[in-house]
């Protein structure tokens, strides 16, 4: 599993305060959802791409991730232009291509990519450790933060566990196919995984209780606003006001 690859780096965004990054990501994402004018959406996309570029993450990784995100968008491009009522651009047999449909698709594509790029450049550039701390500082309910943190902590352990069970099955000649046997085998593999994680959860809890766990998430990382963060904040303020201004003018 490739996780947190994007969190490694030394760019300005990597170094920014995760609290600020979370707030900025929420603000910008919400704003993009509200936008409808093409120019402001283009501006949002360009600035998102700029932010993403400034993180200096491996371009191939970025493109791969963006490709996955755009699968659904491609599906929309194949259907929406033909299923939206509106003035027809041209007709091909039973299919009518409408300009409203094309416009809608374009808007969706811009919005989707802009939001995902904002998230990539702002959220994925922090480690989950830092994000969990930032969420706790931002007064997100402690249970949620701890769930988030623990799940991530044991994700890799369980993935290894799963691979181990699966390897055992494959070594015994298991070949997946479309039949009940396969489904039952998968169910048993998953069942084993669940049983093991349940037991591990129990052990982890006992170990934590031994070390004085009482349901509190102790903060080990504290953040301080620095120059980078003010730069990011002023950039966000500038961007969001100009987006709103363009939206309002058109």
């Amino acid at each position: 599993m490739t996780c947190e690859h994007m969190a490694q780096g030394k760019s300005l965004l990597h170094r920014a305060d995760p609290r600020v990054k979370i707030m900025v990501a929420i603000l910008l994402s919400l704003e993009v959802v509200f936008l409808s004018s093409l120019i402001s959406l283009f501006l949002a996309l360009v600035s998102a791409a700029f932010m993403l570029f400034s993180t200096r993450i491996d371009t191939r990784l970025l493109l791969k991730r963006l490709l996955v995100v755009n699968v659904f968008v491609v599906l929309l491009w194949l259907i929406i232009p033909f299923s939206t009522p509106g003035p027809a651009l041209f007709t091909l047999g039973p299919f009518t291509l409408t300009s409203t449909g094309l416009l809608l698709c374009l808007v969706i594509t811009l919005k989707c990519n802009a939001i995902v790029m904002f998230n990539m450049s702002l959220l994925s550039t922090s480690t989950v450790f830092a994000l969990a701390h930032a969420l706790d500082h931002l007064k997100v309910p402690s249970v949620l933060v701890q769930l988030f943190f623990f799940s991530w902590r044991y994700l890799h352990v369980l993935e290894e566990e799963y691979m181990r069970i699966k390897r055992a099955a494959v070594l015994r000649g298991f070949r997946p196919g479309t039949n009940l046997f396969t489904y039952r085998t998968y169910a048993n593999i998953l069942g084993t995984l669940f049983v093991r994680s349940y037991d591990r959860g129990q052990r982890v809890y006992w170990a934590m209780v031994c070390r004085g766990f009482d349901g509190t998430f102790w903060l080990l990382q504290h953040f301080r606003l620095r120059g980078t963060d003010f730069l990011l904040m002023s950039f966000t303020a500038l961007l969001s006001t100009s987006l709103l201004f363009i939206q309002w003018r058109s």
Partner: peptide, 26 residues
């Protein structure tokens, strides 16, 4: 989710996350 159950729920969440990466042939 009381603190007592928290690690278990978290572990099961992680297990489901892993399970959602499992591709089953249809």
């Amino acid at each position: 989710v009381p603190p007592r159950k928290l690690p278990k729920v978290a572990l099961l969440t992680a297990a489901f996350f892993v399970a959602s990466l499992v591709h089953v042939p249809i």
